[in-house]
Simulated scan of single mutants.
Amino acid sequence: MKSLAFILPTSLGQAMIILVAVLFFPMTEGHLLMPIEPVQILWVNLVMAIALALPLAFEAHEPGLMERPPRPPDEPLLGPFLIFRTFLVGALMTAGAVGLFFYEYNADLEAGIVPALALAESQTVAVTTIILFQCAYLLNCRSLTESALRIGLLSNRYVYFGITATLVLQLCFVYAPPLNALFRTHPLDATDWIAPTLVALAGLPLLSLEKRFWRWRGSSGRNGAAAAARQGAAR
């Protein structure tokens, strides 16, 4: 369940970015203005599947696991909790990536940068935002009901190995000339990393409030969504 709670929202976020571009973005020189290219989506998916999603399989059992009631056998896998989490995280990632893309693109054009270079730099910012957002969200997915402080910051070191590997790969994506040519990216200034980092971290307080909401719903016993979250925390 933890892997689903990580993969589904981030995959939906990528789809929503493309959908927003198709529905609302203008045409430039006969081509649709895209915040992320298909080959860049491939990069994001490769990094996510290998370096980020895998470490969740090594999560230790959470405190109080044996005291939790079993999941009802007739309860669907995609319950209210997972559906709500998927759309919430997907919307947050979409808003952050699309917003920074437009901001960077317009700022570059106003600074007199040629459109092709402005597009490459803006897409690089958008992809970096997605990658950093996924790194931050991975920490949230270590438990679907509790904070990382309660389950232990160092109880799964593979998560930090995965995040470190992801950041190294992203640095290569941004600054290595062969990858610049392959993925149509452009090197960023140091200050260009500030906004993507803030966007990535901004969603954590909201997701913490969401966990509290589902714990409250679970304690009230009004639906099985929290039970699904408890099951996910056990996996």
Rank of each mutant, 00 (worst) to 15 (best):
A226N: 06
G64T: 04
H61E: 12
L169P: 01
Y105C: 02
M34C: 08
A165I: 04
F213E: 00
M93D: 11
L209P: 05
L139T: 03
T166D: 01
P80F: 13
A190I: 13
V125T: 09
G112S: 12
L169K: 03
C135G: 03
R235I: 13
L149M: 11
E62T: 08
C141W: 05
F183S: 09
R150W: 15
L132W: 08
V174C: 05
I194W: 00
G224R: 09
S3H: 10
E110L: 14
V20L: 10
E37N: 11
P70Q: 10
R212L: 15
L4H: 01
E75Q: 12
Q134Y: 02
T197F: 06
A176Y: 14
N156M: 02
I50S: 11
L169A: 15
L8E: 01
A97R: 02
G221C: 03
E37W: 11
H186V: 11
L209T: 12
W216D: 08
D74N: 10
P196E: 04
L149W: 10
L167F: 05
R68V: 08
R215C: 06
F25G: 04
A111N: 11
N180P: 05
P70I: 07
V98S: 02
L65A: 15
L179F: 13
S219A: 13
L32H: 07
H61G: 10
G224I: 05
R215N: 14
L198G: 01
Y158H: 10
S208G: 14
M48P: 02
R230P: 02
G203A: 08
C172M: 15
A226C: 06
I194R: 06
H61L: 12
E210P: 02
G218M: 07
R184L: 13
G96H: 06
A111P: 06
T145S: 13
L153P: 04
G30E: 00
W216N: 07
P70T: 07
G232F: 13
I36F: 13
